[in-house]
Design a protein around this nucleic acid. Structure first.
Lengths: 144, 144
DNA sequence: CTTGAAATCCTGATCGC
DNA sequence: GCGATCAGGATTTCAAG
């Protein structure tokens, strides 16, 4: 039941509670309470509009791996992770330390960004040809 | 003006049009039309609930790089990219070809997934320690 | 979880700049 | 083209059962 609600809200985050109720055969206040509970449990962390960088004039998307020297990590976090072009930043195991997803307007801008990151460690940059899966909804099949 | 609307909707995708109108000093029908236009332009591609894999019992998150042999690419796409554990999949430049973000319940499950992917090419797996930036909203600063 | 009533919101038409 | 106002219908919210 909660899974059905989660699936529907991941598909359309603006579904009204009454529409949601119709789908799952529950009254509107009942689904409202379930959604509020999922929020307070931290299962649902928010609702958001999905925006296309390309349509906004940000045609370049790339993944930058940065091997940050440990002494430079604090400055890396305050100088690089706050840049608006950095859409995702994960600290990971392995030699690469950090994986950043970056969007920008041009290769020149990307070059500048990577030069900044180079100050904190070696980088490896991959340009994204195409995204075949983007933020796939979590589904009960994960527990099949 | 459209930027203000985009920022607010990326923060809270369920904001009502009247609340949105109050924030930007516009009437509800006016903001409604602007949002509809942003949707039809493809700037806003949808609305979604943001769900926490960890809170759902998926504590392992990892980035898998797969160097898929080109002859195996069609099967890779139909056999791997459809798995529910694969939340993101990008085709990228460079030696690695594919970058996948994967969530799962345990290291055993991750091992099985990586073994499947190994059938299509060499893999390199990085476990995510922590995500310091996750889906940062696109902001006008990108064009500062 | 459901019901029901009051407050709020959404939608379309119409008008004005 | 863009936004404001208004009325009718739908939705949200809160109380009570």
């Amino acid at each position: 039941m909660d899974w059905k609600i989660l699936s529907l809200l991941q598909e359309d985050g603006r579904l009204s509670f009454t529409a949601l109720g119709r789908e799952v055969s529950l009254s509107a206040p009942a689904v409202t309470e379930r959604v509020r509970r999922l929020e307070s449990l931290g299962v649902i962390t928010g609702f958001t509009a999905v925006v296309s960088p390309a349509r906004l004039g940000l045609p370049i998307e790339s993944i930058v791996r940065v091997r940050v020297r440990s002494l430079d990590t604090p400055r890396f976090r305050t100088q690089v992770l706050v840049l608006p072009q950095v859409l995702d930043a994960d600290h990971v195991t392995g030699d690469d330390c950090w994986l950043l997803r970056v969007v920008c307007r041009s290769m020149v801008e990307l070059e500048e960004l990577v030069e900044v990151m180079q100050r904190y460690g070696d980088t490896t940059t991959s340009l994204v040809f195409s995204s075949h899966v983007r933020n796939r909804p979590l589904s009960p099949e994960l527990f099949g």
